[in-house]
Simulated assay, not measured.
Amino acid sequence: MYLEIITPDKRVYEGDVTSAQFPGINGGFEVLNNHAPLISALGNGTVKITPTTGAQVFFNIDGGVVEVQNNKIIVLAEAVTA
């Protein structure tokens, strides 16, 4: 899967991942390869990414929206800290 995390100021992350966990407004959820299409609001919390080529990466976000479609994940976040 391909993941992009974008804020109003910059692109924070882009690359291939095997999984991504998100802080949904009604609870956390995980996206894996071939996930059904999805649009969800995100709350404040930690995004946990497992890249295909390395150790897990964590980002703290201040809310936003995630879209999943055709093995591509786009996160539009208010603000992100690593």
Score class of each variant (00 low, 15 high):
Q56G: 15
G28M: 08
I73A: 08
V65N: 14
A82H: 02
A41H: 14
S19I: 07
S19W: 09
G54F: 05
G54Y: 00
S40L: 09
F22R: 10
Y2N: 12
L38T: 10
T7W: 02
N33V: 06
I25L: 10
N33F: 14
F29S: 02
L42C: 14
I6H: 01
E14G: 14
A55P: 04
A55Y: 11
L3T: 01
F59D: 10
T53G: 08
A36Y: 11
V80L: 07
Q21I: 15
A36V: 15
E67W: 04
D9R: 04
G64W: 06
Y2V: 00
T46R: 13
T7I: 03
R11A: 03
T7L: 04
V31Q: 12
I61V: 13
L32T: 13
E67S: 13
I74Q: 13
A20V: 14
D9A: 06
A20K: 11
L76C: 02
A79Q: 03
A41W: 11
N60G: 05
G63T: 03
G54W: 10
V17F: 05
V12R: 11
G24N: 15
N33R: 12
L38S: 09
T81M: 02
N70T: 01
V17A: 14
E78Y: 04
E4D: 12
I49K: 04
E30Q: 14
T7E: 05
A55I: 06
G45H: 05
I49R: 07
A20I: 12
Y13R: 02
L38N: 10
D9S: 10
I61T: 04
L42D: 12
Q69W: 02
G54K: 10
A55S: 15
E78V: 06
P23Q: 12
I74A: 04
M1F: 07
G63S: 12
T50W: 01
N71G: 00
E4K: 09
L76R: 03
V47Q: 04
N44Y: 10
Q69F: 00
V57D: 00
N60F: 05
D16Y: 01
A77N: 08
K10G: 01
D16Q: 04
T53E: 02
A79M: 04
G24Q: 09
G27S: 10
Y13E: 11
T7C: 00
I74F: 07
G28Q: 09
L76E: 03
I74G: 03
G45W: 07
T53S: 05
L76P: 05
D9H: 01
L76M: 15
I25M: 15
T18K: 15
I39A: 07
P51H: 12
Y2K: 10
D9W: 00
E4W: 00
N71H: 01
S40F: 06
V66Q: 13
G54I: 00
I61K: 07
N60I: 02
T50I: 01
F58P: 00
L42A: 13
Y13P: 08
L38A: 14
R11K: 12
A41R: 13
E4F: 04
G15D: 01
E14L: 07
N34R: 12
E67Q: 14
P37T: 09
V47P: 07
T50M: 12
Q56P: 15
F29I: 15
T52D: 07
